[in-house]
Design a protein around this nucleic acid. Sequence first.
DNA 1: CCCATTTATATCGTTCACGATGCAAAATTA
DNA 2: TAATTTTGCATCGTGAACGATATAAATGGG
Lengths: 149, 149
Amino acid sequence: MSNEQLKLENQFCFRLYSAARLMMGAYHPYLDPLGITYPQYLVLLVLWEQDKQPVCDIGKRLMLDTNTMTPLLQRMEKAGFITRTRGKEDTRQRIVSLTKQGKALYEQAQHIPENMQKAVMMPDEEMNEILQMIPSLDKLIEELKKLNK
Amino acid sequence: MSNEQLKLENQFCFRLYSAARLMMGAYHPYLDPLGITYPQYLVLLVLWEQDKQPVCDIGKRLMLDTNTMTPLLQRMEKAGFITRTRGKEDTRQRIVSLTKQGKALYEQAQHIPENMQKAVMMPDEEMNEILQMIPSLDKLIEELKKLNK
DNA sequence: CCCATTTATATCGTTCACGATGCAAAATTA
DNA sequence: TAATTTTGCATCGTGAACGATATAAATGGG
């Protein structure tokens, strides 16, 4: 078998896939004590920025459809971090709100970003190299969003 | 809420997570006709490079544990792409081999990489920028692998 | 204003990802 | 060699992702 492009080592997507998985794994030590998963953490990030949002708005931020959001939010509701109430003007909507417990997690999450950074233990130089990927990742994401429509 | 680091837009991991998901979605048009999923495609990439490998070796290449590999391989066996036989010297091992059908997929997969590239429809310049992420991603993956041990 | 379409959410089924646990075979050590 | 540890694989349970489908509420055009 000789097609170079079909070798694992030349697969860009495999690198993304692996990096994303490993990165989520690296969050475990910080999210487990809070009793949340990484996708739930993402939902909380959105709600901490702005409370009381309909499901679809959260979904748009996270680029996730309702078939992923609904069960995710149901689990978070069951765990006591959020409530899901009916929309007033648009009764189809479910407004997602933080509970006291959900708001309290914000304080506990304060040091997660810096702890993550410390955990990776990279020299500043390498860390900068990693962070320089951000604009490229954003461009890629924009292109792929168009493609997945 | 004011901690800048806790805003979604400043989350590096969220970008990885989204890019990986969207990228896998972009593979759908090319993998669906072959009747395989993206993780199954990865297994095939490994086997096309070298047939007849034990589960653990494939898992090491893909950085996946047996609790993910076993069911994945069972589905691929059921679909007729591989067989799983007992190891001769080490009877604990399951040797994974391509079937005729699994080998035949290699021909059909020839144009996936170039089709993917065409699909994204990026100017060469931007595409190069994306590909320049590779060394950084590899460094990141190496660091995270250490961390996840 | 009525009907067609779109939108917001939910449900179902399948596939992954992964922690926890189990088990038997191999390797190591006493 | 006997006892201990490690390794390779499997199973179970839970939480995502996501295609397909359903339903009711909003919206828009005629």
